[in-house]
């Protein structure tokens, strides 16, 4: 057994192709990004080496710091939302009737591209003709909020479509995990007189704790580098009120032609993500945990 499973050549065959792909297509760009961060470069002209200037500047940059805070807020909300997704998945994976159809319906929004989702939510939030404000008008609210124009609200207004967009992704993963829970264990608990709620909390959730931890990491990393809807729906505005790290990086690199500075921000993003992942895994690790 051990001998077969320790065959170095087989291990190489199974791992190296993927590792090479990732090394070449992800790590080289990563290293280059870090290097570009050490330069002053507008993308068209000569690259000028400036040492750590960009990295130092970012620490002083109020807009960058704000975008970091916003990204962290998104990560926090994404992680909290996992609880809701888990509850939905528990219901969908349970034995009640109609869940097969419901599951398919629930995951539909996930199929839509960001372009479609952005358009939909722009229609939801439109200040005068929008779905939300039309409803509020009907309910007698005279001055409904200007969702995407008010700097105090915009960040939270834009989180909702993001969380909604990713709901299907996590529900799908949880659902598959829950379907993987051996039927015998659930049956045994039922015979012992456990209520459905108890089965869910005491049997199912602990059994999929491994995948829950993975999704926490995914949610945090995914949020910290999130870009799509923010860029399309608000462009980070008004006045930076909904700027996140990735959109700020894009703005600097592609809008202001500060490729060097933009790269430095991207590299910070990576370092922050790494640190957060490390702590998340430390925090969620437990003794009986095989995988960490």
């Amino acid at each position: 057994m051990n001998k077969v499973m320790s065959n170095k050549w087989m291990i190489a065959l199974y791992v190296l192709p993927s590792l090479m792909l990732v090394a070449i297509l992800i790590f080289i760009p990563l290293v280059l990004t870090g290097y570009y961060g050490l330069t002053e470069w507008n993308g068209a002209g000569v690259m000028k080496f400036v040492g750590l200037e960009n990295y130092a500047h970012a620490l002083q940059d109020e807009q960058f710091r704000e975008s970091v805070v916003h990204s962290f807020l998104l990560a926090l909300f994404s992680t909290l939302s996992l609880g809701i997704y888990l509850v939905v998945s528990l219901i969908l994976a349970s034995k009640i009737k109609g869940t097969n159809l419901l599951r398919k319906i629930y995951l539909i929004p996930m199929l839509l591209s960001s372009v479609a989702i952005a358009q939909l939510w722009l229609k939801v939030y439109h200040p005068t003709n929008g779905m939300l404000n039309s409803l509020l008008n009907l309910l007698g609210v005279d001055h409904p909020p200007e969702w995407l124009a008010n700097p105090d609200i915009v960040l939270y207004a834009i989180f909702i479509p993001i969380l909604w967009q990713y709901a299907g992704f996590y529900i799908l993963i949880y659902y598959a995990a829950l379907k993987n829970v051996p039927e015998e264990l659930i049956e045994a608990a039922r015979i012992d007189g456990a209520t459905p709620l108890q089965i869910a909390l005491k049997v199912k959730v602990p059994l999929i704790s491994g995948i829950i931890k993975v999704t926490v990491v995914l949610a945090i990393v995914g949020s910290l580098k999130y870009f799509d809807l923010i860029y399309v729906m608000t462009g980070g505005g008004p006045n930076g009120a909904s700027e996140v790290m990735a959109s700020y990086m894009y703005k600097e690199a592609f809008g202001s032609y500060h490729f060097g500075y933009g790269s430095a921000i991207a590299f910070y993003l990576l370092i922050i993500t790494l640190i957060m992942t490390y702590f998340t895994r430390k925090l969620t690790a437990s003794k009986d945990d095989v995988q960490y």
């Binding site: 990732v22 790590f27 080289i28 993308g43 990735a246 990086m249 990576l270 790494l274 992942t277």
Partner: peptide, 18 residues
């Protein structure tokens, strides 16, 4: 761990090197 780091790169910063 290496593979996990690969998940962390923001794609727009990879565009130019790629």
């Amino acid at each position: 761990g290496l593979f996990m780091v690969g998940y962390m790169i923001p794609i727009h910063s990879a565009l130019i090197p790629l």
